[in-house]
Design a binder for these strands. Structure first.
Lengths: 353, 353
DNA sequence: TCCCGTCTTGCAAGCGTATGCAAACGGCCC
DNA sequence: GGGCCGTTTGCATACGCTTGCAAGACGGGA
């Protein structure tokens, strides 16, 4: 069976050669017709495009990648999509990539803080970059990525290895701002529900929170951990609420946990958030704005964070071996889940100074 | 500069040829060393693997796909990750693919019900399959996919074109079950907050709900629409609650909307769900089980749905041109957001009969 | 008319891997 | 030692495309 008839039978998919034959030109002309800016006469191009249309031809990007060495694929590793912050981040990444002509290769992470060689295989695609949402990687894996020339960017997390680029929010500053806000609001028995102890994100938020009180000679906040998970955070909140010295304010290291805590306070202890107990989160996920939660929180603005990540990808593509660490500024969103200071709270700037 | 030294300089990434030279074998031997079941002597293989290790060689999957014609890439189109049902579905797909040796190529959908040629470009990768979560496609796009030999599977949605495979939940049965449950619970002024009017999912749920009452000569439920979105659903719930003939039960076409409705009832109208007004959802997202919501809902079991989808991919790969429509059974999860019948409610079977 | 410059086009060599085929190898039995 | 068979190995080609290079087409000026 000739190639020609195979196409007509619709049994095979058309290649550039088929189109070339159909249009009576060479295969390279077909390639050029589909390459913006290539040297080709206008009417030759329309002739080729017409033939391609007839045959239903689409350039094979796999073959193209093989030559160019670029796959236009960005690997994105994410665990815990139940946390709306990551769901939204992922969605924004996918839209941003769309605009940039990139494709998002998603791979799951099974809840570990540190990524070993599990994703090893993903490197076999010639990824343009690897973005890890709230995960770090072992040095072994980092080396592998380096060898495979795949730039890695940690999103919302920093690694122990400072040579790995990162984009994070203002974790420590945010936590200090919250501490100041709660103290100004008259709270005197603060508590914190921390995230995963091994994560830089939680560590920085804890440090900021504890630091603020310590520096002022105030008693240290009560510490619990919720591992960034809903159920663990709920359990932590229960423990806090059952203490004889029940805290009057609880800072949760992210909104996902804050929502869990808020529900526990309200439905299990009959405490109205913002009146009977103050709850503050971190991230400003969409739910935080729901009237049901009206969560006071420190925002991590996803738009600039995603933008910066994409800029970083570009930077690293042009200059492999470079390292870019970005801290994206955020701000305190005051809602009603925490009692606010009587006098206007001077937003973060005071803390910043 | 020789290829050898380029590798040592770590300036290029190692290819099978480099490994072959390093191990003193041919390139084909290297290929076979990495192909399970290929004809190669055991000690040759270890020699090659050692050389590969030394050079940091990883088989280039791009090149492999070019030959095999299979990319091992599954395109997944999803909009609205804010709906936890899809977030969880996506996560489960990514894990399932991991096990099946497949990769998930994510692309975003901008909230449209029907997909036109926007994703056109994604077909240029030789996708093994295309899964659309809650989206249908235009016939143009369907034709394109067919020409590109990319099987399409609609997940949680059916298309107007019956030749496109689908995996859906028991929409109509579920809605009937809910109708029966609410009626048995003594509710006499039912309402429904529908989803996107053009979506089969919402249509089937509406039909089931309305149908159950119509067949019994009961008055038709009040109808509102929430388009499967949080804010629209909240607005719809407000309209319902402000009616003079305020409904005593509200069936929301998915949990995402039910949660919005529940919050409106509770926090804006001071109505306690399950006591002052009954609210039922569809999907059984994780949040539905939270004590704060305790949402009665008809479950769409994601595990079998995802499993079936993957089976369908296999089926379609072996037999392109086949069509598989699957309806995955679900069941009513009775919690406390809706007043339950005094006598035990005979679960769905009665409706099924 | 001829020459030269500019725009198009085709040729052919890859990109990194898989694989059919045939050659080489090794062991075994007669 | 020779012949035979099963296992390993290398050679060469193919996958579908891009791109450097050189040849062809064409037009204008001398």
């Amino acid at each position: 069976m000739s190639a020609r008839s195979r196409i007509e039978d619709n049994r095979m998919i058309a290649t550039a050669n088929d189109v070339a034959r159909e249009a009576g030109v060479s295969q390279s002309a077909v390639s050029r017709a589909f390459t913006p800016g290539a040297s080709i006469a206008a009417n030759t191009r329309v002739k080729i495009l017409a033939a391609a249309e007839r045959l239903g031809y689409q350039p094979n990007l796999i073959a193209r990648s093989l030559i160019s060495g670029r796959s236009n694929l960005i690997g994105v590793g994410v665990g815990n999509l139940a946390n709306p912050f990551f769901a939204e981040a992922l969605e924004r990444f996918s839209f941003a990539f769309e605009d940039a002509g990139l494709r998002l290769l998603l791979f799951p992470i099974d809840g570990s803080v540190t990524l070993g060689t599990e994703i090893h295989e993903v490197l076999h695609y010639r990824l343009d970059a690897l973005i890890l949402l709230s995960v770090t990687l072992t040095s072994t894996l980092a080396t592998q990525c380096q060898r495979a020339k795949v730039p890695v960017i940690l999103f919302n997390r920093q690694g122990s290895d400072p040579s790995i680029s990162s984009v994070i929010g203002a974790n420590e500053l945010g936590a200090r701002t919250i501490a100041a806000f709660l103290h100004a609001g008259g709270h005197r028995r603060p508590a914190i529900i921390a995230g995963l102890p091994d994560s830089s994100t939680s560590q920085q938020r804890e440090q900021g929170f504890h630091g603020w009180f310590a520096e002022r000679g105030l008693p240290a906040p009560i510490s619990e951990r919720g591992d960034f998970q809903h159920d663990q955070a709920a359990a932590a909140m229960r423990r806090l609420m059952l203490r004889p010295d029940r805290p009057d304010a609880v800072f949760c290291a992210n909104d996902h946990m804050a929502i869990a805590a808020l529900n526990v306070a309200r439905f299990e202890f009959g405490l109205e958030p913002g009146r009977d107990v103050s709850i503050v989160g971190f991230d400003d996920v969409p739910q935080a704005a729901w009237p049901a939660y009206s969560l006071t929180t420190f925002a991590q603005p996803l738009v600039p964070m995603v933008e910066r990540t994409i800029e970083t990808i570009r930077r690293l593509r042009d200059d492999p071996g470079a390292t870019v660490h970005s801290v994206i500024d955020g701000n305190l969103i005051v809602r009603s889940s925490a009692r606010a200071p009587r006098v206007a709270f001077h937003p973060p700037d005071e803390t910043r100074a």
